[in-house]
């Protein structure tokens, strides 16, 4: 949706007013409705599909491979494909680097450990079928749901193979649920003195700035960074806005995670 200058100005005015008047009537800390399906791809170990009310749709699949963790540094590898964007476009590259960084730095390698020598390596494939607003939050929700519904092959050989070499052997049929803490990413738009969560595309177009906040294990963690949401309205960010943004996420993140877990 392309807005005229006047429309944008009007929208901006409404968002900076106190309290912010969002075009779809949401309050500052309210998300748009989303729908999540999990475990619908039989051949992958975990999968999820998320659909937002504006039509943004994203599919995530997680597959596993057994690797020697003394040789393999990274136990998670993310691949992102966004429909309509080239693989080397800034959006895809930016999303990819954020996801890789967040997942690698936050996820505990121990939760993927099989034996003293071997671990699972997770390959996470993200496919954004259509995106109308910044897809990062949705992608992270989808990854969260996919990993939390991931079933990995059950190890039946012994898990101590340091002194006595053993190749991991797995149960022919049984799968074990992966227990892992997954970070969630939130995007917050700064409009004047207001901060609003989950900006729709029209809101992104007029926001003064965007903040990416990572939520992991019950608290805000690194990376927290700004996101350029548009080119016309971008201005600097005040410490107050940043603090407000973090506060907002601290308030709502537990509820969101709870909703995702249910």
């Amino acid at each position: 949706m392309v807005l005229s200058v006047t429309e944008k100005l009007y929208l901006h005015e409404s968002l900076v007013s106190n309290p912010p008047a969002r075009p779809d009537g949401r309050s500052a800390d309210q998300f748009r409705p989303i729908e999540i399906f999990t475990d619908f791809l039989p051949t992958s170990n975990g999968s999820s599909k998320i659909v937002a009310s504006d039509g943004t749709e994203c599919i995530v699949s997680a597959k596993c491979k057994v690797v020697d963790h003394t040789l393999e540094e990274d136990l998670i590898e993310v691949d992102v494909d966004i429909a309509g964007h080239r693989d080397d476009s800034p959006l895809v590259q930016g999303t990819l680097s954020v996801l890789n960084r967040v997942l690698l730095s936050q996820i505990d390698r121990g939760s993927l450990r099989l034996t003293k020598k071997y671990s699972f390596k997770l390959y996470i494939d993200v496919l954004v079928l259509s995106s109308y607003s910044h897809p990062l939050t949705l992608i992270s929700f989808a990854i969260y749901s996919a990993l939390n519904s991931t079933l990995l092959p059950t190890l039946i050989s012994s898990d101590d193979d340091l002194d006595v070499a053993e190749l991991p052997t797995f149960h022919d049929y049984d799968l074990t649920k992966l227990t892992i803490k997954v970070p969630v990413l939130f995007t917050v738009a700064v409009c004047g003195k207001n901060v609003i969560v989950d900006p729709a595309s029209s809101e992104s177009d007029v926001a003064n700035n965007g903040i990416l906040v990572t939520w992991y294990d019950g608290k805000v963690t690194a990376p927290v960074r700004t996101l350029g949401l548009n080119e016309d309205y971008v201005s600097g960010i005040t410490p107050q806005s940043l603090a407000d943004g973090l506060k907002l996420i601290e308030d709502i993140a537990p509820k969101v995670v709870k909703a995702l877990d249910s």
Binding site: T43, S44, N45, K63, C64, K65, V66, Y118, L152, P153, L167, P168, T169, F170, H171, D172, Y173, L175
Partner: peptide, 10 residues
């Protein structure tokens, strides 16, 4: 699950 050479494929 197919275990082969230490790998596991679903």
């Amino acid at each position: 699950v197919r275990s082969r050479n230490g790998g596991a494929t679903k």
